[in-house]
C-alpha cells in the first residue's frame, strides 16, 4: 500500500518534469511531435531507415520526421492515429522482410509505455496487443523504466534547440570507418531468400487496413515506401509486398534499389541498411521528385 502511494507520487513527479522535455529520443521527440502534430503538413513515419533517410525540410516547409530506431508498423501507426482530421501527407516506411515476418508480435508498441497513462489511443493499442507489463497497472513508474536518466539529462541540459529540429537525424560518416563497416556487412550478405512462400504478417495486415481507413476518414494522403538497401539479394518479399499493397489499394513505392547503382560511391552509405547524410539527401530529393513532383514545397 505504502509502496503503491510512493509510486504514484514519484510517477507524477517524473511526469511533471518529463512534460517539459522536448529533446532526446526517449520522450523529447514524442513531446515535440505531440505539440506540433496538428499543424504539420508532411510527416514521415518508420524505423531508423526512415529517420536517417528522409529530410522532411527538402520535401515540405512544414514537415517532421517521426522515424525512430527499431520501430515497426505498430508503433508508427499508433502515432499516426493521433493526427487530427485535416489534410496532411504521410510518408510511411515499411520493410518487406518485416511485413512478412511471422514472428512479429507488435513488440515495438512497448516503446510507447511512457504515454500509456497520457493518451487513450496509445492505451487502446497497447491493450489490444497486450503489450503492457501487467505490473504497470499497479506500478505506474514502469512507464519510465530505463529512460529516467535520459529525461533528467534533457530536462537539465537539452541536447539541441528543438524549435529548429525537424526530426531527421543525418548519419555522418568518415570514409575509412565507412569502408570497414561495409566490408564487414558484405561478409554477412544473404544469398537468395531465407524462405519461400510469403504471407503478410496479420498484425501488419491489420494496421495497413486501419491506416487506410484512418487516412480516408481524416483527409490524409498516405504513401508507403521502402528505403534503399545495399546487397539485398532477396527481391521476392519486395514483389510480394507490392502485390499485397496493390490488392489493398494502397500507394506503395519500393525504392530499395535506388542508389544501388552507386555502390562504388560508398559515401552514400553509412552501412548496408543506412544511408549517410549525403546519401539521405540524394534519396530525399529523388523521393521529392518522383513522388511529389517539382512544386512539392
Amino acid at each position: 500500500m505504502v509502496s503503491y502511494v510512493v509510486d504514484k507520487v514519484v510517477y507524477y513527479g517524473i511526469r511533471q518534469m518529463e512534460s517539459s522535455v522536448y529533446t532526446g529520443q526517449s520522450v523529447g521527440k514524442f513531446n515535440q511531435y505531440l505539440s506540433i502534430k496538428d499543424s504539420l503538413d508532411f510527416i514521415v513515419f518508420g524505423s531508423s531507415r526512415a529517420n536517417h533517410h528522409i529530410n522532411p525540410s527538402l520535401i515540405s516547409e512544414n514537415g517532421y520526421n517521426m522515424g525512430m530506431d527499431g520501430q515497426k508498423i505498430a508503433f508508427s501507426a499508433t502515432l499516426c492515429k493521433l493526427l487530427p482530421k485535416r489534410e496532411q501527407t504521410i510518408l510511411f516506411h515499411i520493410d518487406p522482410e518485416n511485413a512478412v515476418d511471422d514472428l512479429y508480435m507488435a513488440e515495438d508498441l512497448s516503446s510507447l509505455k511512457s504515454m500509456y497513462y497520457k493518451n487513450k489511443i496509445v492505451q487502446k493499442e497497447m491493450n489490444k496487443y497486450k503489450k503492457l507489463n501487467p505490473l504497470q497497472q499497479i506500478y505506474w513508474c514502469i512507464s519510465y523504466n530505463g529512460i529516467l536518466f535520459g529525461i533528467i539529462k534533457n530536462y537539465l541540459k537539452p541536447n539541441y534547440n528543438y524549435t529548429t529540429y525537424n526530426g531527421y537525424d543525418p548519419l555522418q560518416v568518415n570514409n575509412s570507418s565507412n569502408r570497414n563497416v561495409l566490408k564487414l556487412d558484405k561478409k554477412e550478405i544473404q544469398v537468395g531468400c531465407k524462405k519461400k512462400g510469403y504471407t503478410l504478417n496479420p498484425i501488419y495486415k491489420a494496421y495497413l487496413t486501419d491506416l487506410k481507413e484512418f487516412s480516408k476518414k481524416n483527409k490524409k494522403q498516405l504513401i508507403f515506401f521502402t528505403s534503399p538497401k545495399l546487397f539485398d539479394n532477396c527481391k521476392e518479399d519486395n514483389l510480394f509486398l507490392r502485390k499485397e499493397m496493390k490488392k489493398m489499394n494502397l500507394i506503395y513505392k519500393d525504392f530499395s534499389d535506388v542508389l544501388l547503382s552507386s555502390t562504388s560511391d560508398l559515401s552514400n552509405w553509412k552501412d548496408a541498411t543506412h544511408l549517410s547524410k549525403k546519401g539521405a539527401e540524394n534519396f530525399t530529393n529523388y523521393v521529392a521528385r518522383t513522388v511529389f513532383g517539382p512544386n512539392v514545397k
Binding site: Y139, I142, N145
Partner: peptide, 8 residues
C-alpha cells in the same frame, strides 16, 4: 521497488 520499476 521504485528502483526496480524504474530501472529493471
Amino acid at each position: 521497488t521504485l528502483l526496480i520499476t524504474l530501472f529493471y
